[in-house]
Design a protein around this nucleic acid. Structure first.
Length: 493
RNA sequence: GCCCCCAUCGUCUAGUGGCCCAGGACGGGGCCCUCUCAAGGCCCAAACAGCGGUUCGAGUCCGCUUGGGGGCACCA
C-alpha cells in the first residue's frame, strides 16, 4: 500500500452507552490507522457537563478493549498530543476563540437563551428557516468589550460569510456545496467558557495532527461550518468520511430506545457491553458491523487481522444500513466454530459458571467437539453442556415417553436398553449404538423413539449433543444410574 | 418551513459505460446427511424505484419525480 500513515481519532462523548454505531466508527478508525501504519487515538469529548454520565468513559474503554480495538493514544494511556479529554484542554479553545474575535472572524454574543428560544418559535410559526438573527454580529466591538469588562454573560459566535458558497468534499459523496446565506453563526464558546463540539473537535484535530475524520452522517450538515472555521484559521483540512446511520431492522427510521428494548427481549442488543453479556464474541460482532457500510465482493468471513489487510476507503458505502440481528447470530456462530477448542472452552466457562454449574476444565474441554457447531452464542453452552456437570439430572416425567408410546411402553423400552448397556464395559458410540439400533429395529421401534427416551433419561432434556458421545463423556456408572432413575419416574406415571 | 444526503434481491452488499438475461452473504424454500438440535453439502425463488436525457451501448453519467434518511441547540 502506498497510503501515508493516517492519524485517526475515535472521539465519543461520555454521555451514554457505547452502541453499535460508535463501535463501527471506532472499527473503521482502527482499520484505517492499522492499514496505513498510522495511529489510532481515543479522545473523550466531555464538554457537555449537563449530559455527562459518570462511568460512561470506562464503558467506552471496556468496549474498545473487548472488541480488540487497541488505541495508541488515549486518556488512560497518554501520548505525545495529550491531554485526551477536552475538559483538560479548555485554555487552548479559549485561546483560539480569542484569536478569532481579535481577527474579526468571531464575535461575542450577549443574547439570552430565552430570547433565542422565542426567536426560534417565531421562525417556526412563520415557517422560516431556523437561524440566529444576527443581533450581536452588528454590535460595535468597543461596546462589546465594555459589556464583557462589566462581566456580562456571553458566548462567542463564528462569523459565517453572508454570501457566496462553501464547498467541501466527503470521501464517499464527493464535493458538496452550500449557499452561505443558509448557514448560521454557530456558537464556538459557551457562556461557561467551554467550547462547543464545533470549536473543540476542530482545534483538537488540528493540534493532534488528525488526517482523517470518520464520524456519523449527522455531522454532514455542519461540515460547511467546520471547513469555514478551519480555513479561517489556516489549518490543513483532513479527509472527511461521514458514515451513514444504522436504521432499525424494519429499515424505517433509526434505532431508538424502543427498538433497543425490543431487541433485548429477543436476546439481542445495540449496546456492545450487552452483546458481550449475551454471549456474542468480538469476532462475530466485528465481522457483522464491518460489513454494514463497507462492501466486499466475496469471502465475507474475516477476523480483525484480515480486515486490516483488506480494508480500503473506496469501498465505503454512503447509504443507511438496517440492522439485521439474524446476521449477527450467523457470524457469531461461524467465528465460534473457528476458535480452537481451548479458546472456546475458556470463553464458554464464565457463562456456565454464571448459570450455577461447577465447571471442571478437563471435562469442559472434552465436551467442546460435541457442542461447538450447536452454538450461536457462547451462552448456548448452558443448555448444551450444562448436564455434563451435574451429578443427577431431573428429567420432566412428561418429556420421557416417546411420541406415540405410553409411559409403561417407554419404561419397558429403556429397561431393555439398560440391559444392553450394562452388558458393556464401556459406553461409547462404537460399542453402544449398533446393538441398541439392532434391538430397536427388531422390535419395530424407530431409533428416534428409543434414543429419544434415552436422551431425556441421560441428559434430562429433549435436545442435546449426540447421545452416545455424550454418554461416553458422562461415564458408564452415571449413565446407568440416570437410566434407572428414569425407569422409576416412568413407572410412577 | 429551510438545508443536506441516500436509492441494486426482504436485509447487508459486489458492480467505477460493454466482462451483468446482475455476483456473494444473511434470511426463506427444497433435497441430501442424520439418534434430537445443530453444523455441513447441493439446488431454487428473490433486485438495478419511475420517467426523461447523454452515448453505438447505462445498474454504472446527467436532470426531474418519487421514496427513505439526517440536520436546522450555549448537545455531541
Amino acid at each position: 500500500m502506498t497510503e501515508k500513515p493516517a492519524r485517526v481519532r475515535f472521539a465519543p462523548s461520555p454521555t451514554g452507552r457505547m452502541h453499535l454505531g460508535s463501535a463501527r466508527t471506532a472499527l473503521y478508525d482502527y482499520l484505517l490507522a492499522r492499514r496505513t501504519g498510522g495511529k489510532f487515538i481515543l479522545r473523550i469529548e466531555d464538554t457537555d457537563r449537563k449530559r455527562f454520565v459518570p462511568g460512561a468513559e470506562q464503558e467506552l474503554i471496556d468496549g474498545l478493549r473487548w472488541l480488540g480495538l487497541e488505541y495508541d493514544e488515549g486518556p488512560d494511556i497518554g501520548g505525545p498530543f495529550g491531554p485526551y479529554r477536552q475538559t483538560e484542554r479548555r485554555e487552548s479553545y479559549q485561546k483560539w476563540a480569542a484569536e478569532l474575535v481579535e481577527r474579526g472572524l468571531a464575535y461575542p454574543c450577549f443574547c439570552a437563551a430565552d430570547k433565542l428560544e422565542k426567536n426560534r418559535q417565531e421562525q417556526l410559526k412563520q415557517k422560516l428557516s431556523l437561524r440566529y438573527d444576527g443581533t450581536c454580529r452588528r454590535l460595535d466591538p468597543d461596546e462589546a468589550r465594555r459589556r464583557i469588562a462589566a462581566g456580562e454573560k456571553h458566548v462567542i459566535r463564528f462569523k459565517m460569510p453572508y454570501d457566496g458558497q462553501t464547498t467541501a468534499s466527503d470521501i464517499m459523496r464527493g464535493p458538496i456545496t452550500w449557499d452561505n446565506a443558509g448557514l448560521d453563526d454557530t456558537v464556538l464558546l459557551k457562556s461557561d467558557g467551554l467550547p462547543t463540539y464545533h470549536l473543540a473537535a476542530m482545534a483538537d484535530d488540528y493540534e493532534m495532527g488528525i488526517t482523517h475524520v470518520i464520524r456519523g452522517s449527522e455531522w454532514l450538515p455542519s461540515l460547511p461550518v467546520h471547513v469555514n472555521l478551519i480555513r479561517a484559521l489556516g489549518w490543513p483540512e483532513p479527509v472527511w468520511m461521514h458514515l451513514s446511520v444504522f436504521l432499525k431492522p424494519s429499515g424505517k427510521g433509526k434505532m431508538s430506545k424502543r427498538e433497543g428494548a425490543e431487541a433485548l427481549k429477543d436476546g439481542h442488543s445495540i449496546f456492545v457491553t450487552d452483546l458481550q453479556k449475551l454471549g456474542y464474541t468480538p469476532e462475530g460482532v466485528l465481522n457483522w458491523i464491518v460489513l454494514m457500510g463497507w462492501g466486499v465482493a466475496e469471502d465475507d468471513v474475516m477476523t480483525l487481522h484480515e480486515m486490516t489487510q483488506r480494508f480500503t476507503i473506496d469501498h465505503l458505502t454512503a447509504s443507511p444500513a438496517a440492522i439485521n440481528f439474524a446476521k449477527l447470530d450467523h457470524f457469531n456462530g461461524t467465528h465460534i466454530r473457528l476458535l480452537t477448542a481451548e479458546d472456546l472452552a475458556g470463553r464458554v466457562k464464565p457463562f456456565l459458571t454464571e448459570a450455577g454449574f461447577r465447571v471442571d476444565d478437563a471435562l469442559l474441554l472434552k465436551t467442546i467437539p460435541l457442542i461447538r457447531e450447536r452454538l450461536a452464542t457462547l451462552d448456548d453452552a448452558v443448555p448444551f453442556a450444562g448436564f455434563f456437570f451435574l451429578e443427577n439430572v431431573n428429567p420432566l416425567p412428561a418429556e420421557l415417553p416417546a411420541a406415540g408410546l405410553s409411559p409403561a411402553q417407554s419404561a419397558e423400552i429403556i429397561r431393555q436398553a439398560l440391559k444392553i448397556l450394562s452388558a458393556l464395559t464401556e459406553i461409547n458410540h462404537a460399542a453402544a449404538e449398533p446393538p441398541l439400533r439392532q434391538w430397536a429395529e427388531a422390535r419395530g421401534l424407530t431409533v428416534n423413539q428409543t434414543f429419544g427416551i434415552l436422551r431425556v433419561a441421560v441428559t434430562g432434556q429433549k435436545v442435546s449433543p449426540p447421545l452416545f458421545e455424550s454418554m461416553a463423556i458422562i461415564g458408564r456408572e452415571t449413565v446407568l444410574k440416570r437410566i434407572e432413575r428414569a425407569i422409576e419416574l416412568l413407572e410412577k406415571m
